[in-house]
Design a protein around this nucleic acid. Structure first.
Lengths: 214, 214, 214, 214
DNA sequence: CATGAATGAGGATTCATTCAT
DNA sequence: GATGAATGAATCCTCATTCAT
């Protein structure tokens, strides 16, 4: 009656899996259609459950969305912050490493599409906006800022306005992610090649940030 | 805008003004709330007409949106293409000039908010996506591309992958515009300063594109 | 094309009639089924319009209900207050007159069923409770109280606790109205005869309120 | 309640207590919110059991409600009927005694709130209506009627329409109970004082029912 | 006996679009 | 041309009831 390797009854194991199944279905649809345009019934169907079941796990659409962000973005952010704090090499190397990890972990997953949606819909869902700004945007900016400041401090970058430069660096990465999930993206795929895009970005950026060649 | 000799009776001039009044109301709301979340009734009210009147001028919501794009973005794009074709100086100068004009003309107007909305909503409105991709995105990319190619051809830029670099350049500008109208933007306003942002962008970019200092 | 006796276009005359038609449908269903159990769609259908039309006139269910109360109860209350203020005869006569008018005007209409519903549902709809308490209950109590006080002051009633006696008098009248619309009422109809009930009520009451026979 | 010699193991005694715990939770919520608005999940939680357990004891919401009535109202009714049958003194005394017992036993308990709810909701739940009419309303009316008839027969009351007068007497008592649990009740509590209300009721009533003073 | 996960029908509300005037 | 009343499909959320464990 019970799997000898797992003492829980089957439906209880099911219950443990449900949240993840629901979040997986939710992120797919949120990223594809946006927050408002995603119907909870579709999320449920995609997860193979009924509408009502969704509400057993998340009290409403906004909480479901927050849970998606918590599961798909925040863990990565934590790891990235840690790696920044511990890194010991050249700041250009640190920047490259963070960008590349970002690309590998967020960029390859559906999570890369969340930013696009918040950009456009936050204004219609103030509580979501507040949550995302505080939990994701602010932390991300702080992390990038700290890399730039470290570089300047250590003489590895020339001096510049770190506040603006932080945005200048984040902007193309966010846009890259947005484009990946956008119907107005630089065409079907041949024009937008994430790896090449990031290489170009790091290329121009590192050329631009490093102290003048001497 | 109006010919001082205009002999039409006032209400007829009124009639001529209608489309513009409607588009002005529409762009405000589209940019603030997005395409789907904008209620045509609100557009009508803001323009001071009834809901029915809107339909006298635009057959549906999508056509209204296209008209907004046609009025607020395409004219600028045409002028920019022309100026690129005619420019004679250093390519870095041309790039700076196009970016600054973009900033002054699109960036300062509500039109800067259109991109953000298309990014997120195009997928739900395929015909809009097609229209925007062809009329705006492709033309913009072609224009920037041609500047880069010109720079390389004339030895004013070092050699690089122009396709990706085009995206790398467009991305932060689009993101800057998106942020201007976004509730998740880099905070209260002090962190995001468009002029400083663009200066930083040109700074790093020109540093990065120019041939190695010699 | 237009009725010569009414210069309004037909659909505009319709618009004037709508609110009343909707309120008439609403009071029927509210009184029969209660506030929560009444479906707005049924109200609309009964009024011969679509669900959406209801929302053109009343922003939500609670506002519809308030409008019902405003149309069906408050006008009578105003008239009754006035007649109390102006009355000049014996207080027993005044009491009888107010009770009989109440019976004729509220009692015979659907409005008599509102009290029953508020009794039970107010707790689930706090704003409705506040509204009804202030606009209906308080005013009614004040009116009855003033009659009793007048009677005692003029020596036409014996002395008693007017606060409690006000409730004692209101209670059976409210219950009579409640029963008229209740499925647990004193049986099908032969046992509860409103006129006879009120006669009995006035009989016992006036016997009870008048000064001891002398 | 429990036999001190009870030899059952604790959980079995627990089992015996379940129905009562469930009914206690149920009456609280039914009286506060009404029948339809009470969620079975809340009843279960308040009784400290799971939703499913409720269905082990009562096949559905309606049966739960009936059980509440059977436990909280019918026993008192039986005792009252008995005391009427056995009483030997003056009918006014009998009436006062029944009223006061009613007040003490039903009035002080949650059971006093059942009437209010049936008044409003019976129509939506026909089987409940039938049950309540037959088991509670009819028996109550028969009991009061018999007191009045006895009084007239014995020359202790003047002659009047006993059918109507029964309603006239029941009405304020039911309304008193309804008000106790109602959000539209005669205000904050100072205006409605059950004891004083009943005194006033008996005062006016007995004044009104007794034969003319001679 | 007891649990609580799962279901799905049901209802309030919104809004693009139509059309009679 | 202009109006705005009317429509009804669409979607979030609730909750009585079932049933596998």
């Amino acid at each position: 009656m019970q799997c000898p390797l797992d003492s829980k009854p089957r439906w209880e194991r099911r219950k443990d899996a449900r949240p993840h199944e629901l979040l997986a279905a939710a992120i797919d649809l949120f990223v594809e259609r946006g927050f408002a345009a995603t119907r909870l019934e579709d999320v449920a169907r995609r997860a193979g459950v009924s509408k009502g079941t969704l509400y057993l796990y998340y009290t409403n659409k906004e909480e479901l969305f927050k849970a998606v962000v918590r599961e798909s973005i925040l863990p990565f952010l934590g790891k990235a912050e840690l790696s920044v704090a511990e890194f010991e090499g050249h700041s250009a190397e640190l920047l490259r490493s963070v960008v590349m990890n970002w690309s590998r972990q967020i960029g390859q997953s559906k999570a890369s599409g969340i930013g696009k949606l918040m950009l456009a819909e936050a204004v219609n869902f103030p509580e979501l906006a507040r949550f995302y700004r505080e939990e994701v945007m602010s932390r991300t900016r702080r992390m990038i800022s700290s890399i730039l400041e470290r570089g300047i401090r250590r003489g590895e970058f020339r001096s510049f306005d770190t506040v603006q430069m932080t945005q200048v660096l984040i902007a193309p990465m966010m846009m890259l992610n947005a484009w990946k999930h956008s119907a107005v993206a630089p065409c079907a795929s041949d024009e937008l090649q994430p790896q090449a895009f990031l290489e170009s970005l790091l290329d121009v950026t590192l050329h631009g940030l490093l102290p003048r060649a001497s």
